[in-house]
Nucleic acid binder design. Structure first.
Lengths: 144, 144
DNA sequence: GTGTATGCAAACTGTTTGCATGGAC
DNA sequence: GTCCATGCAAACAGTTTGCATACAC
């Protein structure tokens, strides 16, 4: 299936599409799992060592997050985990495989609490992240 | 009500109880809200400027988290938010007031997902944090 | 031609660690 | 007396920013 427009239009919205940005967006899509910025930068340099300084990747990721192309799905060792998520219209969360980084959608478990009340508090936002093992890693013993 | 043993025994479990640690635990309890380590360190130095170097506070907080005296309840500007939570026996989460930092318990909204399955994944752990406004801040317009 | 993205390096922030000293037990 | 906690400062990792140059539009 081909659900990602890696030309850059989808990834960066109204921002400019440059060679490094195209490569970064394409790499992020092809990773097909949750990744840290550092991992993404490594993968990009794997394709083209001349491109994508760390700062550029950070800025590109920020732009892609702003456009909804990427979402942050959790943390790992203090670093933010991002992932490509095509379904930005429907509110949901993500499950991250601790072993291979694969992600899946998870319905929001806060049907009534969402934008509602808890202990008298007015809830304005919430963060839900699930971690575990994907079917493949659960069956295979954890290796990728 | 006096629910906190600030002598240090409860806070540090089997660890040693020193003057700085006692002060740190006592201050953490008295804050009565979510705080970053930096805020806690400031509050401690407010009482005794000679005690509690940053590293000491970090180590004391780590010890108190290990003993269950403190729990991490979220993040703020990249820093970890901690809070005193006396109910470590029952699994639950917390609501943090974005305005004054006050916290309240929140029931875990993952009754079936918890230690269960989602999209074929085996869920091993989850993080849920709610942010909003406490009753006082919601009524008073947001000031503490 | 204008303005934004790049790349490099320095700066920043939250957090951790090494080491010699002091104090809890 | 032994071992852990302290304090200071340096080290560290992730992330952000300043600035001159290159390129998308």
């Amino acid at each position: 299936m081909r659900t990602d427009d890696t030309s850059g239009r989808t990834a960066y919205g109204s921002g400019r599409v440059t060679a490094p940005r195209r490569l970064i967006a394409s790499t992020a899509s092809q990773l097909n799992r949750a990744f840290t910025i550092d991992e993404l930068a490594d993968a990009v340099r794997d394709t083209d060592p001349r491109h994508a300084a760390t700062a550029t990747v950070y800025r590109a990721v920020a732009a892609m997050e702003a456009s909804g192309f990427l979402v942050r799905v959790g943390q790992r060792d203090g670093a933010t985990l991002f992932a490509r998520c095509g379904d930005s219209a429907r509110h949901h969360h993500h499950v991250v495989c601790d072993s291979c980084g694969k992600i899946a959608h998870a319905a929001c478990p806060l049907p009534e609490v969402e934008s509602g009340h808890t202990a008298g508090f007015i809830i304005t936002r919430h963060e839900v992240t699930l971690y575990g093992l994907c079917p493949a890693c659960a069956a295979g013993g954890g290796s990728d």
